[in-house]
Write a protein that binds this DNA or RNA. Sequence first.
RNA 1: GGAGGGCUAGCCUCAACUGGCAAGGCAGUGGACUUGAAAUCCACCGGGCCGCGAGGCCCUUGGGGGUUCGAAUCCCUCGCCCUCCGCCA
Length: 435
Amino acid sequence: MLDLRQIRERPDAVAARLATRGGAVEPQLRELLALDGERRVRLREAEELKAERNRVSEAIGLARRRGEDAGADMARMRAVADRVRALDADVKALDDRIRALLLQLPNLPHESVPVGGSAEDNVEVRRWGEPRRFAFTPRTHDELGQALGLLDFERAARIAKSRFTVLWGAAARLERALAQFMLDLHTREHGYTEVWTPHLVSADTMLATGQLPKFEEQLFKTQEPDDNRTLYLIPTAEVPVTALHGEEFLPEATLPRRYVACTPCYRREAGTYGQDTKGMLRQHQFDKVELVKVTTPAQSYDELESMTRNAEEVLRRLELPYRVVVLCTGDMGFSAAKTYDIEVWLPGQGRYREISSCSNCEAFQARRAGIRYRPAGGGKAEFCHTLNGSGLAVGRTLIAVLENYQEADGTVTVPPVLRPYMDGLERLTPRTPGG
RNA sequence: GGAGGGCUAGCCUCAACUGGCAAGGCAGUGGACUUGAAAUCCACCGGGCCGCGAGGCCCUUGGGGGUUCGAAUCCCUCGCCCUCCGCCA
C-alpha cells in the first residue's frame, strides 16, 4: 500500500512512477485525491461538533450535580449527535473507498530500476559459470527423470491433476537433500534464523503481503461454511514469514531480522495454460526455501544485495551456471520496488530460467501489515522495509541438477556438495520398480 | 462439540465502585544534578486533522452496532486468546 500522504503531496510524481509499470492509474489517483479532500472536509466538521458536544456534555454533568436544569442544552446536543452520526458514517464510507483504491495500486519502482514494458527490457547485471559443453544432445529433465523412473507425471495427474509431480526414490531424496542443504547454508553461514510456519493463512495475512485483494484467482483456498473462516494455501513462505511481525513495534537495535523457511507453495497458475506444460517447471505445488528480511529503510537496499548474493551462493556451491537480471518496471511484481531474478542455465532448454526472485518491497507490505520499528534515538515509530527472495526454488533446482549433471548414458551425477545428504550416493541410475 | 474465563496505549497490571476529563508501573527519549556513570527529580512517551509556527482540536479500552446530553462501564452482535471436559496424530 502506498502512503496516502505522498499521493496527496506529490500526485504527479507518483503517477509518473506508477505509469512506468504500464496500465493507466491516473483516474484512480484523481478519484483518490477527490475522496481524500471530501473526507477531510467531513472529518473537520465532525470534529468541531464533537468538541462542542464534549464541552457542553461536561457542563450538563456539572449543572445536574448542582441540581440545575440543563434541558435546553440536552435538546440541542440531541441534534448535534444526529449530525455527528451522519458525518461519521460519511467519513467511514470514504475511508473504506480510499482504502479499497489504495489496495489496488502497486508499489512505486525504485529510481534505480530500468524502465521497460516487459521481460525483454530486463537488464543482465552479472553472470557466473560457463554452460557445460555436451558431447551429446542434452535431454530435458522430464525425459531424463521419466527414463530413470524417478519423475512420474502420469500417476500425479491420476491422483490429483496436471501440473503435479510424483518423485520416486532417489529423486524424492534429492528434493529433501537440496532443501536441507539450502537451509543449512543460510542458517550456518548467512545468519538467517529458521522458522516453521502455518501453510494455511487468513485473508488478512494474504492482504498484508499483497496477494489479496487483487490476485485471489491465483490462490487455492479452503471451503468453509462461513466465509470469514476461509483459509488460503500459501503461494510462498514470504506470506506467513513476512506477516510474523504484523502489528508489532520492533526495536531498531534488533534489525535487520533475517529469516529462512522451507515450505510447500501452492499456486493456481491461472492464465498460464500452454506455458511450460511439460515437466515440473511450473507446478501447482512445489517446495521453496525462502529468505525474508525486515529492516530499517536505511538498510534495505544493502540487504537486498546481500540477500541476492546469499541465494546465488546456493548455485555456486552446486556449480550451476546462472545469471542475475534486474527486472524492469513493467516486469516487476505488485509489491516490489526493486527485484533481481536469478536465472539458472537449463541445458535441456538451452536457456536461462528463473530460479529465484529477490525483492525489496520497501514499506509497501509493512504499511499493510503494520510492521514498525522504534528508532534507536527515540522518536516516532516508522514502518520497516520488508524483503523476500527465493533461496532457492527447490523443484527448479532439482530440474537444474538433472539437466546440468546428466551423462551420455542417461544417468545423473550427484553434485558433490549434496552427497553427504544422500548417504554418499554419487549417481542417479534407473530405478527398479519396487526398489 | 460442551462449559467457563479473558481482550485497556510499545509491554505489564482484577486503576477507574453507581455511566461524567482512561490510571499506575516498565521500557524508551529529552532535560536537571554529576568529572563520568548509577541513583534521584522533571518533562515527553498511541493514531488522525488543522496551522508557516507557538500551538489547537478530534479519535483511541478486540471489531461492528445500539441506548444516552455523555459509554472502558449498560444492551446486542461478531472475532480472537486461554483453561477444563470430550475427540484426536
